[in-house]
Computed example of a mutant assay.
Amino acid sequence: MIAAAATSAMATPAFAEATAVTPLLDLRVRHEFVDQDGFADEANATTLRARGGAEASMGAWRLLGEAEATVPLNHDYDSGFNGKAGYPLVSDPKNLELNRLQLQYRGLARTVVTGGRQRILIEDQRFVGNSGWRQNEQTFDAVRLEYADPKGLKADLTYSWSVRTIWGRDGVGGRQQAVDGNYLFANLGHPTPIGNVSAFAVLIDQNEQVVSLYRQSSKTLGIRVAGAKPLSKAAKLTYAFSFASQADYQRNPNDYVSNYLLTEAGVESGPWKLVLGREVLGADKGVAFTSFQTPLATLHKFNGWADKFLTAPPNGLRDLYASVAYGWKKQFGFDSIGPAVTYHRYRSDRLGQHYGNEWNAIIAAKKGRWTVTAKYAGYDARQFATDTEKAWLQVEWAY
């Protein structure tokens, strides 16, 4: 008995050292204001988002579980499901769900395998991302394999059978909680003298019985180059180029081929960053739903924060943009402060339509685990959508 007790006492510390549990917790409260032509009322949405969970690791294994809740603190907005159709849409409905539950194995040479409900961010999130600006993020029920060798070769392969959308548990129709199907994401990249070069494929086969979702089934193949070159001791040139071709796939009732093109260049010098870019989501000769689409992207990140182009118009989209940003370190009591301003000019890819123009501005200040963000979007409509102003004030704390 004494020997057994001693053995148990000696074994417990060894197990404790081999097993680590890391808590996961973040809180975000945000007020979003929307003034949009065509609505009698302005939207004022105040919402609280809370995530909590833990990751346990032992040897090569990691188990992560995380719940997520979004709570409206008022109801002066259309969440998509609350019956407030007289207000502009703010896509943050009330929600309570299992956000992530994944098992990961890191025992293979330079390879990580992750299975379960997980967050997937691929490169700049233009084709696959988590829509992290929304209170309820997008996750995937999937199996993912990632490989990286010391010389820089990276391979990333994912099969997903369900996309857990931003709409949450009350989602229905084209705004449902989960969109089942067969999704394949593949990415192969390697550093070169001109920058990191990657080839990618995104295959979307949605099998939900909703026509609008059938039309999102597509096959996209592309290449991306991103890099930086020194201009002097104090400045560097940054650049990115991406081209992709997309065609209808599986249940999509349309027959189309459209192309995507991104060209971007920037200069960074000290705290300053200047960027000029042009992004084209091309259009085929069809009448509708034949322009280049990226339904699994972090869409709010691209083509303006007014969110007028979450779905590319039938005639495609050409977005010419310029931005300037500045970053302070250890100023005014904050660890960092970063203001930025961006201008967009939107045109169609065919028929020569001038959709409109947009200004975006942001300032974010960080102090320890706290981040405070103020953000603005102003869309001036010409031949697409309606004049819209949006403003946000957000406070976030993350452990």
Rank of each mutant, 00 (worst) to 15 (best):
Y321W: 14
N303Y: 07
F292N: 04
D319S: 04
Q293I: 00
A322E: 04
P313E: 13
G338R: 13
A322Q: 14
F302Y: 01
Q331H: 12
L317S: 13
P313S: 07
L310M: 09
P314M: 10
L320F: 12
K330Y: 02
K330Q: 11
T311D: 13
A297H: 08
F302G: 02
A306D: 02
P314E: 10
L299I: 10
R318L: 02
P314G: 12
Y321S: 11
P313Q: 03
A297T: 10
K329Y: 00
N303A: 10
F334N: 05
P295G: 05
W305Y: 12
L320P: 04
A306C: 04
G333P: 01
L320T: 11
S336L: 06
W328G: 00
F334Y: 08
G338P: 12
T311Y: 08
V324Y: 07
A322K: 01
K308H: 10
Y326S: 14
S291Y: 11
T294P: 02
Q331K: 15
L310N: 06
Q293F: 01
P313K: 11
N315A: 12
T294C: 05
F292L: 03
G304H: 07
F334I: 02
F309Q: 01
Y326M: 15
W305M: 04
T294L: 12
G316K: 09
D307R: 01
G316H: 02
R318T: 06
V324A: 14
K330D: 07
